[in-house]
Amino acid sequence: MTGQHKLLAVFAGVVALLIVASLVGALLAQRAASAKSREVIANLNARTKAWWVMVAVLGCAFAAGQGATLVLFAFASFFALREFISLTPTSSGDSSALALAFYVLLPGQYALIWTRQYGTFSIFLPVYAFLFLPAVSALASDTRDFLARSAKIQWAVMVCVYCVSHAPALLLLELPGFDGPNALLVMYLLLVVQLSDVLQYVFGKLFGRTPLAPQVSPSKTVEGLVGGGLTAVAVGGSLWWLTPFTWPQSLALSAAIVALGFLGGLCLSAVKRSLGAKDWGVMIEGHGGMLDRLDSLSFAAPVFFHLTRYFFE
């Protein structure tokens, strides 16, 4: 099977999964008796419907090539950053710093992937944005809550742009013995991280008893994490044929992706709560905002990228 065929096979698998999910959802909707369960099922079906759209958009971008994939992730970063900043109380003194973040740093970070400059890509935001963002804010001479404001913008840029950009940065890696395309690695990461979220949700709804961190995320349960997480690791392990990994390596990397994805969801949930919100936004019907879908990816992507780069390049 060539790389292109593998990519097609994965998409076919995802579409089959979505068909099953849609059928199950329709069946559950017919059976739902109480108002509460009807609400849960309606949300489930809205989520499945949104997944159809997300998979279609991703499929088109992958088919159109690396440039389109980069543009797609750049827009995902843009919307995530927009949500983060919307919930963050910034002051008018931050205008220039925010314009810099949205209109220079974000496109710049993705341009560095496009021009394949790994070195600059990896330090552009943690070093240069770190120094220049607060400098620009300081020039506006508004000292009220200066450290808190700078830190929030910094965090937003690191999570929404720097971390998320590591997913399409997988396209940069040159892996000996792997005849690619590297889009397969991006697909592998997305599949494991999102499947882990979905399975944790499903296991949580079916068997969830023990809340994990009720203050941070009331829907996360120990049963959901263990059941969903382990199943996602197993599925990830079985997808070794997409990647340059052997199956035990694939199991280990999937475990890393699932663990980091969980931590990402938890941390960003805590950030969201501290800003007094339940969802990051309203862009994706049933899911909330863009960042509600990217939270786990933002933590998993950089670690998966570096593990792959360190051990396989």
């Binding site: 927009r82 910034t90 205008s95």
Partner: peptide, 20 residues
């Protein structure tokens, strides 16, 4: 909502901020 944060009086570049 929020539009005074996106393009306040005196600013030239609109900042992307979600408005309901």
């Amino acid at each position: 909502e929020n539009l005074h944060r996106s393009l306040p009086k005196g600013a030239f570049v609109p900042i992307p901020i979600t408005c309901t």
